[in-house]
């Protein structure tokens, strides 16, 4: 639809242009885009409907709805635009992308990311994602990341035996034949959990309130 940053700056709502007008225009754009994107598909006849028939008409209807919405918004007014946060969307998207490109090797044309497995991708998503909130505190997120990752590795890797990559591919090849993979997984889980719990103890000593919060969470993870 429309670009989040293109709406209005964070803070006060802009009242002179109604929400519905912009939403309607967005829908029109989406509809036109849909018509364009399905333009090269044969539409066929009723007896032998082609692949383009339904999407084409649905896209047209989307645009019509958008037009109606924009008109009602224009005539009747309505709610103003809401403010958009920028930090949240940007950081959360980055965190999810970080997970996606590190969990296993991904190729973008000539570039291939190294597959680092859950042990890296998990904490990356948690810690990076945590910064979407202005209340983020690094140590707290680190503890959460370590304990959650340990829990997930145990659950998905060991108990459920899912083929989700746990370790960096390079590490797996290096350890191949030296340590059975199960043992390596359990050792890593133990190490992560120990570091996490150690940090948690330190944290609790310094600040009791934050500590209890984390403890509750780790218990349920």
């Amino acid at each position: 639809m429309s670009d989040p940053s293109g709406g209005a700056g964070p803070g006060n709502a802009v009242s002179w242009v109604s929400q519905n007008v912009v939403a309607g225009l967005g829908l029109i754009l989406l509809g036109v885009f849909g018509v364009w994107a399905t333009g090269d598909l044969p539409r066929g006849t009723l007896g032998a409907m082609g692949p383009g028939m339904l999407p084409h008409w649905v896209a047209v209807c989307v645009a019509v709805c958008g037009f109606a919405l924009a008109v009602t918004g224009f005539v009747r007014g309505g709610e103003g635009l809401q403010s958009f946060g920028l930090r949240g969307p940007v950081v959360v998207v980055l965190a999810i992308l970080a997970f996606a490109v590190t969990i296993r090797p991904v190729s973008f044309g000539p570039v291939t990311t190294p597959g680092l497995g859950l042990i890296v991708a998990g904490p990356l998503a948690v810690i990076l994602g945590g910064y979407a909130s202005p209340e983020a505190r690094f140590r707290e997120l680190l503890i959460l990341a370590l304990l959650l990752t340990a829990g997930c590795m145990l659950l998905f890797g060991d108990l459920l035996n899912l083929p989700i990559p746990i370790f960096p591919t390079a590490l797996i090849e290096a350890a191949s034949g030296k340590i059975p993979s199960r043992v390596m997984l359990r050792l890593a889980v133990g190490a992560l959990a120990l570091i996490g719990l150690g940090l948690l103890l330190l944290q609790r000593r310094s600040s009791r309130r934050a500590g209890t919060d984390v403890a509750r969470h780790s218990m349920t993870a």
């Binding site: 999810i96 859950l118 994602g129 945590g130 209340e135 959650l148 997930c152 919060d213």
Partner: peptide, 23 residues
């Protein structure tokens, strides 16, 4: 659980969950 800790956890579970469906 404070939201500042809850949502990163949800993010991670969502990512793992979605990945595990089709790899």
């Amino acid at each position: 659980v404070p939201y500042r800790l809850m949502f990163p956890a949800i993010l991670m579970f969502c990512s793992i969950g979605i990945y595990s469906i089709n790899s």
